[in-house]
């Protein structure tokens, strides 16, 4: 393993140089070669030991700050407020003063940062209570506090909501035992922005740099020889499976 080329090549080269010349001297004892071989081997091991035998590209550096779960922390709590010109304002500080009914159909002047990208769900009043902006509204007109956004989303996302209740969608932090006081299930709006709920694309953190893990260019051309997963290829490739997937010619060489 240690520097694969050095130990295997060098003694061999040494032997082939030595043998013709020893053949010329009839009294020569082959024990010499043995001693010589030891010396050469010892030299090889001595000088090659201690180095870093792991073939690898330089370890990519990345900002450890990127290691956060990216949870949304700007959630509204009751009573909800927004920051207007540096001051915290209750919604009703304004909305009690005037009737507004833009309903998202015309460009907003006040809540300019809100961009509604929620597919068919394109009316502010599908979710916000017209009579009391400090509440959210359900289809039947009843209102829910901001702390219970899941009930709101549930109306239109039944299957996902059911999954969330079971714990198969979303995330539970703190404890795997759900009866524990530390178990804390994230609400929908801790991951999704209610206004443009599609999950954002992220920049991937660096992948493995060790060359033993396969060619970085792997995937085009010859993926195979060095890919450890292919050791078990014979198991994975028999039967109907082979017919199901068209592997093209890159498999031909190996089977």
């Amino acid at each position: 393993m240690t520097n694969p080329e050095a130990p295997s090549n060098t003694p061999g080269r040494e032997a082939s140089h030595a043998s013709p010349s020893t053949g010329a001297a009839p009294a020569f004892n082959p024990g010499w070669l043995l001693g010589l071989g030891f010396v050469v081997l010892a030299c090889v091991f001595w000088f090659s030991s201690g180095g870093d035998p792991t073939p690898g590209a330089p370890t990519p550096a990345f900002d450890v700050a990127l290691l956060d779960a990216g949870q949304r922390t700007t959630l509204l709590t009751d009573p909800p407020t927004v920051l207007i010109a540096g001051f915290e304002q209750r919604c009703n500080a304004c909305h009690k003063l005037f009737e507004s009914d833009s309903d998202g159909t015309r460009p907003l002047t006040q809540h300019g940062h809100i961009e509604l990208a929620h597919g068919l769900n394109d009316r502010c009043s599908n979710c916000h209570d017209r009579d009391d902006r400090e509440r959210l509204v359900l289809h039947d007109g009843s209102s829910v506090p901001y702390a219970e956004t899941a009930t709101l989303c549930a109306q239109c996302h039944g299957p996902v909501y059911r999954d969330w209740q079971r714990g198969t969608h979303g995330k539970t932090l703190g404890a795997w035992d759900l009866t524990s006081a530390d178990a804390q299930r994230l609400s929908c709006t801790e991951c999704h922005d209610a206004h443009s709920p599609a999950f954002p694309a992220l920049h991937p953190l660096p992948g493995p740099n060790t060359l033993r893990m396969g060619e970085p260019s792997w995937g085009g051309g010859h993926h195979g020889a060095r890919n450890p997963l292919r050791r078990w290829a014979d198991h994975a490739h028999d039967g109907a499976h082979e017919r199901e997937h068209e592997h093209g010619d890159d498999d031909g060489g190996e089977h």
Binding site: P204, P206, G207, M213, P216, W218, A233
Partner: peptide, 16 residues
């Protein structure tokens, strides 16, 4: 595909 031999773990993209 669910054949892990089709997978690539060296992917590097601006976004995923």
């Amino acid at each position: 595909s669910i054949d892990i031999e089709d997978g690539n773990h060296h992917y590097d993209r601006p976004t995923v």
